[in-house]
Structure formats: structure tokens, C-alpha cells
Amino acid sequence: MSRWIRSGIRVVAPIAAAFILGFVLFASAGYDIGEVINGLWQGALAAPGSAEQSLRWAIPLSVISFGIVITLRTGEFNIGAQGQILLGGFGAVSVALLLPDWSPYLVIPLALLFGIIFGALWSAIAGFLKVWFNADEVINTLMLNFIAALLIQWVTTGPLKDDATRGETASTPRVDQTFRLSDGAGVSIELIAIVLIAAALAWIIIERSPFGLKSKLVGSSPRVAAWQGLQIKRIHITTYLLTGAFAGLAGALEVLGPSARLVTGATPTLGFTAIVVAIVGTLRVPGALLAALFFGGLQAAILYLPIVSRLPSSGLRIIEGLVALLITAQFVWLRRRHNRRREL
């Protein structure tokens, strides 16, 4: 039991420290802290509809973070979820728009499947570059994010352009109402059920499959893995496919759920926030679910805060960044201490 308490403290302490640091920063810049705290509270939970908003953001964050848990366990820093979400949305919206007359019972699973496939293949590009050429995955996944954004821009202003929209944000036409999994608020039984199924699958893959155990060994000691005859390249490619699959699923859920269409510049930083979610969730599926609820609340508050406080929403992004920074710093510190103890 004390192990659970200790790892709980390890997660909560840096988050608390991040908020305190953030508040000190805001206060020294002249913002009213009471107002900010109130805005956070209102935006995440108290104001009418805000709890639903929190859940709405927790849904994609959790699904993406499952994939990131897998990739971080394997030791691959795939930070391309951002682009993989877009490709997933593209796959799903294409199916929905190309087959408008089919039954929703066929189109919805097909759209989800294509979202998953598109996301997985997009991620696999970086995977193959890594396995074949040992090309750095951080740079490749990051750059693929930009390419994905431009691709979506082209799609929404070209082949799948919605002629009704005029203005800066281009988008595809809306998908048929019968294909949608939720209304604009983005919370429904269907979506929550899909998240739970995804969580169960992710848990089995990570904790109860040879791939899950082996990827952990590859991530922690690649040379030991090689001497144990593990097929490291195959494990790497599988990792990239899975990470992209979960991000692609999240993208598909967005276009079949709250957004109903693919918009340029949509879901600005979910793919990066999900990395923090995975780390805060201690690289475990249940942890990631809890952390997604927390960061979903923060995301809702970020969007709500400018309404009640003068603090711009980027202020809360600073807190998010501080959480990531402090948790990483703690990891490094724990490892150092661990290593010192070993030198006995």
C-alpha cells in the first residue's frame, strides 16, 4: 500500500509545485490570484456545463495518451500525436463524406477503422525511418506534425472543401448527423464506451501481452533485449503503429463527435498535452485515465478563463508546461538517486 501512496505523492507533488510556481509568476506580473483560482474552479467544475467540458477534453486526451504510454515504455519519443490525430480525423471524415447514403452501423465502424489506420500509417513513417536509417524520431515525428497540418489545410481548401464556409478557417463539410457519436458538447455514452474499450485494449496490450513486456525490456535495456533474441525492429514498428492508431482513433472521435468536420488548425495542442498526461499517469493505463480527467479539466479552464479573468489562456499553458518540466526533473532525480544507491 505504501508503494501506492509514495507514487501518488510523486505525481501530486510536482503538480502542486507547478501551480504554486505559476501563481507566484501571475502574482508578480500583477494578476489577481483569487480571480485566477476562481476562474480555474469555475472553468473546470463549478460553472454550468463546465464539468461536461472537462470530460469532453478528457476523452481525446485519454485515448491519445494510451498510445503515448506505449511509445514511452518502448523508449521511443514519438511526439507526433498531433499530426496523427489530424490524419485520423481525415480518414474518418473521408469515409463519412464518401459514403453518405450507407447505414450508420457500417459507416461509423468503418470511419473509426480508417481513422485508426491513417493515424497508424502516419506514425509508421517515422517508425520505418527510425528502424531502417536510425533517423531521430523526435525530429521526424515533430516535422510530420507540420506536414500533416499542411496536408489538412490542402484537403480542407481543395478536395474536401466546404463551399459554405468563408473566412479564415477552412473546413470540410459537416458529416451526416446520423454518423455522429455525440452533439457539439462532445460527451455521450457512446464516446465514453469507446474510451473504456480503448483503455481495456491498451491495458491488455501493455500488461498482458508478450509485446507489452518485451517493449518494456527494449525500452529499459536494448542490449539485454538483443541478447535475449527479441526482435527489436519489429517491436519498434509495432509501437509506432499502436501509438498512431490510438491518436488516429482520437482524431476520428473528434470528427464523429463534437466537431462534426475537419477544421484547419483544430485541436491545437492535444497531442502534446497527452504526453504530459501519459507521464503524469506514470506510464500506466489507469493512471493515464485519471490524469486525462485532470488535464481535461485544465483544458476546459484554459478555454473558460479569459471570460472571467484578465489572464490570457496561455497563462495556464505555462502551468501545463511546468508540470511536464517538474515531473521530468523528478524522473531524472529519482534515477540519479537510484544509481547512487546501486554503486554499492
Binding site: 508478450p210 518485451k214 529499459s220 535475449q228
Partner: peptide
């Protein structure tokens, strides 16, 4: 470096290759 993964639990170190 090659024989056992320091961070993995004992049982995983022993059984992983024939999972």
C-alpha cells in the same frame, strides 16, 4: 549491460524471452 535489465522486476528478467 547485456545480461539483465536493472530496472525490470526479477520475474520479467527471467521469463520475458519466452513470454
Amino acid at each position: 549491460a547485456e545480461g539483465a535489465s536493472l530496472s525490470l522486476p526479477l520475474w520479467e528478467n527471467v521469463a520475458i524471452w519466452k513470454a
